[in-house]
Simulated assay, not measured.
Amino acid sequence: MTDFYCEEVLSGKTLVEKVLETENVLAFNHTRPFYEEHIVVIPKKHIDSLVSIQKDEMQIMIEVLNVIKDIAINMNDRFGACTVSTNVGDYQSNKHMHWHIHFGKRIRD
């Protein structure tokens, strides 16, 4: 299975509209959004999923969570709510840990 985030987004092959970027984290508007507002947050280092995080990656995870928090605060301030989620195992369409932060009506399946 291809890793869209490493092979396309982080390599620059697929251009994304960046929302927030830190040394180890990239947040961008979903390339094919499912919701009216839909942001994806990824670590720049390849980490398979939430359940595969290693002890030496905990600092990156703190950075990931801080970015998620900042975006969630912004969405909550703007819209009054948002959803933050990640998938694990067979639910994970791409085996690179990524988080969705979204608000609004579902616009596609």
Rank of each mutant, 00 (worst) to 15 (best):
D70N: 15
D48R: 12
D77F: 11
I53P: 05
R108C: 02
D109C: 02
E63Q: 14
M61E: 14
I101T: 01
I47F: 00
V19L: 02
M97L: 12
Q92R: 05
D3A: 00
G12E: 12
V64R: 15
E17Q: 11
S49G: 08
E17L: 04
H102P: 05
K95L: 07
D3T: 01
I101H: 06
Q59T: 11
L10F: 08
V25L: 12
G12N: 09
S11I: 05
E57T: 08
I53R: 10
G80Q: 02
S11D: 12
V9H: 04
S93Y: 01
N29A: 06
N76H: 15
F28V: 03
K55T: 12
F28K: 03
Y35A: 06
H98D: 01
S11G: 10
D109V: 13
G80A: 06
N76C: 06
M75H: 09
D3N: 10
S93R: 07
E21K: 07
D90R: 10
T14S: 06
V16K: 01
K18C: 00
I73A: 12
T31N: 13
V84D: 03
L50G: 08
I60S: 08
L50K: 02
N24C: 11
A72L: 08
V16W: 07
C82K: 04
S85R: 01
E17K: 02
D109G: 15
H46D: 10
I53E: 14
Q54L: 14
V64S: 09
R32F: 09
N24P: 09
Q59M: 08
K95V: 07
N66G: 08
K69N: 13
T83L: 04
A72S: 14
I60M: 14
N66E: 09
R108I: 00
Y91H: 13
Q54P: 05
L15Y: 00
V67Q: 15
N24M: 03
T22A: 05
H98Q: 07
N66Y: 11
S11E: 06
R108Q: 10
Q92P: 03
G12K: 09
P33G: 00
I68F: 05
